[in-house]
Nucleic acid binder design. Structure first.
Length: 413
DNA sequence: TGTCCACAGGAAATACGGGGGT
DNA sequence: ACCCCCGTATTTCCTGTGGACA
């Protein structure tokens, strides 16, 4: 007399319990860990001699403090996910404990610019960090913002380390921002200011005004991407905490590490891949196999594109849809900007959208190119003009999915 | 050899809106 | 109520260009 639905549910539940893959899900996602656990994880990673050399460099650089000198600024190079941020924070934490022991006044703050922002927002963020101001959208003059920051630091006299993470993400007026940080601020406050600027663009300071650049005396520190061995260490530490050992097939860690190091050397992405593989395995009630890792990698890739297009501004979505449409209509392997623009105007009238000018449309196309949703190259067809060739190279299946997402967003069809 | 297509893509101008000070 | 400062998004205006064709 048992309800078949209940039986099915209970079978499924007991199945997943018996076949547990995941021991503690939280260790697959840093956001869910409490501070102490994060620290413990970091300790484990650094104790495995990962990033040892960099920590030594940092120590050497900041040893000036204990001789009473102000260390020069530090520029840290390295791609995202190479552990710049974590290593620096971990190091500064240790340093601040050391200073406490020696009664040296020391303070450090961390400002993350991983999402790009204009000069004004960056200054505003900084002021908020120092509790000198509330958050403004816009409206105040830059001058006022700077004064607020200065007065917040007016009474502090010790060492002050300010980390500006992803420092090349200041859009527009980067000069103003760095002139302030590098030239003006140190003169206005008594604190001994040291900047740590991290960037993943090697040519970063070159966009800066030469006068500011020449004022920026700094040492360089390089973070190489993690190699497969480092990634294996990092993954093993996660696996130990998050998963049941017998649920991980041999070679899985090595495979994930190899995939990740080949593509980007990004530890965070490697962990995401591990996490997704584990979820798949758990759903299927199997171990984590090499095949599942491949599947998970594919899904993650697809998710990226879908998420990107779903959260993109409307006109970008419209442009993408028009390109797909033009591409279908053309039956060719490529589309020109003009073709796409015609379709775009049609699309806009269908979607009750005010179409943008061709010039703006051109920018949308190049933006799609940057996101790798399409491939774009300029092509000269002789007396038939110069245009951009737009090529759709994603798998047809994914293209249809993207199209569906856009149509859904516009509530068409 | 010159012409001319069909755009590329830079620069400046404009539109619009939030927010402070007075 | 008004002016100023700042932001983003677009438009307007512009000069530049590789190569097929006459």
């Amino acid at each position: 007399m048992e309800n078949p639905m209940i039986r099915r549910l209970s079978d499924q539940i007991s199945g997943t319990v018996a076949n547990r893959v995941i021991k503690d899900r939280r260790f697959l996602d840093d956001e869910q860990l409490i501070r102490a656990e994060q620290l413990e994880l970091l300790e484990a990673i650094f104790n495995a001699n990962v990033r040892d050399a960099e920590i030594k460099e940092l120590t050497y650089h900041f040893s000036d403090i204990f001789r009473g000198n102000n260390p020069v600024h530090l520029t840290v190079w390295g791609k995202t996910g190479t552990g710049k941020t974590l290593t620096i924070q971990y190091f500064l934490g240790l340093l601040s404990q050391l200073c406490k022991k020696s009664n040296i006044p020391f303070r450090h703050e961390h400002r993350d610019l991983s999402t790009p922002r204009p000069c004004f927002r960056a200054l505003n963020d900084l002021a908020c960090l120092l509790k000198a101001s509330r958050r403004y959208r816009q409206g105040l003059s830059l001058e006022e913002m700077m004064t607020k920051i200065e007065s917040a630091l007016a009474n502090y006299q010790g060492f002050f380390v300010l980390v500006v993470d992803e420092c090349d993400h200041i859009r527009r007026d980067a000069d103003t921002f760095y002139t302030f940080l590098i030239r003006r601020l140190p003169q206005q406050i008594k604190a001994k200011l040291t900047l740590i600027l991290t960037s993943n663009k090697l040519d970063w300071p070159n966009d800066l005004d030469p006068r500011v650049k020449s004022f920026l005396r700094s040492n360089d520190l390089f973070f190489n991407p993690y190699n497969a061995v480092d990634l294996q260490q990092i993954l093993k530490i996660r696996v130990d905490r998050a998963l049941h050992k017998q649920a991980v097939e041999e070679g899985v860690i090595e495979k994930i590490a190899a995939l990740a190091s080949r593509e980007h050397g990004d530890a965070r992405k490697a962990v995401t891949l591990l996490s997704r593989s584990a979820q798949l395995a758990e759903k299927l009630g199997s171990k984590i196999t090499l095949g599942l890792v491949d599947q998970a990698a594919g899904e993650l890739e697809e998710d990226r594109y879908i998420l990107m297009i779903r959260t993109a501004p409307v006109h970008l979505q419209a442009a993408m849809a028009s390109i797909i449409e033009a591409w279908r209509a053309a039956k060719r392997s490529s589309v020109t900007t003009g073709d796409a623009y015609d379709k775009y105007k049609e699309f806009c009238s269908k979607a009750a959208l005010q179409p943008l000018t061709p010039r703006a449309f051109g920018d949308l196309v190049s933006e799609l190119g940057i996101y790798a949703l399409v491939r774009v190259r300029v092509l000269s067809r002789g007396r038939y003009g110069r245009t951009r060739e737009i090529i759709l190279e994603l798998p047809a299946e994914l293209i249809s999915k993207i199209e569906n997402v856009i149509m859904l967003n516009f509530q068409l069809r």
